[in-house]
Design a binder for these strands. Sequence first.
DNA 1: TTATACGTTTAAAACTTTTTAAACGACAGG
DNA 2: CCTGTCGTTTAAAAAGTTTTAAACGTATAA
Lengths: 176, 176
Amino acid sequence: MEDELLKIKEDIIQGLGRFSAFAGFNKITGQIYGLLYLNREPLALGQIAEQLDVSKGNVSLNVRIMERWGLIRRFNKRGDRRDYYEAETDFWKVIRGILTERDKKEVEYTMDSVTDSLAAIGKLDAAAQTDEAVFYKERLEHMQEFGDTIAEMSRAFLALDNFRVSSLSRLGLGRV
Amino acid sequence: MEDELLKIKEDIIQGLGRFSAFAGFNKITGQIYGLLYLNREPLALGQIAEQLDVSKGNVSLNVRIMERWGLIRRFNKRGDRRDYYEAETDFWKVIRGILTERDKKEVEYTMDSVTDSLAAIGKLDAAAQTDEAVFYKERLEHMQEFGDTIAEMSRAFLALDNFRVSSLSRLGLGRV
DNA sequence: TTATACGTTTAAAACTTTTTAAACGACAGG
DNA sequence: CCTGTCGTTTAAAAAGTTTTAAACGTATAA
């Protein structure tokens, strides 16, 4: 392979590794993605480990999560018992997977604690409805409203398919 | 203070601590925010440390970043040399701060590496324009397009102010 | 001047996450 | 049956991060 291309591949792999760590995954996740994304042929687990110069165990751990989140796809070839992986190139699908599999749960979990707290305040008897309690209620309701709006926007975002996204940007969402 | 309220405060502090760690900050950041958010009065650095039962140094480190990202505001009272902090309660401001101060840079950094790689491919001489090179070009351009769309959507999002957000959701963005 | 109350810095300790190497079980081909 | 090749699991090592305690500098007040 052309030397220059090899350098490019390496740059992208490292760049995505860095980004991946920033985005809350680990570095290897991004590197695996980068490697597969710039490979016309799918790669087997062992090949990934070899090319990235990390242990098979590490790759094994990472591909499992990546598959669950829809970052890559696993498949088999007949007469070959290795597991092959290829990158999901539909980025909207990828984002959708992460938002619904990972982020959604965590946000809901947090908002549930707000809801619970508000319910607890509501159940206080009249004597306990102090200024402090009212203040808490206001603040938590404000937080809940925000959470609801975010949830609603996420739903809207997730409902967009690729075609709609591109038409949306062509319409100039910036001037809504 | 009412015992029940104390428990609520603690729950919210822990909940936001957890969320904060998930969102790429550290746990203390979320806890500080939660404490200040449920405090009518601003608190001094030492008081925060005491109430959260962590060292002053830890709080000092965290409030600096939080202030930069617009999560909290610092101010002084005359005749009192302590630094007081209060939570920024405008969540859109907070999100805007984080997206522009933290996330924007990291995304741009990543996309720059894609742009650089594409430029490098463009500069290859005719002999080096192999199938492989063409494949790289396609994939990287695809990635760049996606990045551009995300950047555009972010800009649109950041341009929304609170009023516009609420009217947007009332209009039912979900059916765009 | 000395003592005290601040916030910051620092180097080390504690903790968490990531990574590895090696052991393992399954399975295919001889 | 062996033997070698897979992917997974595991326990330990390595690396990274968070947290602390203590030292420090500055300012204020006695």
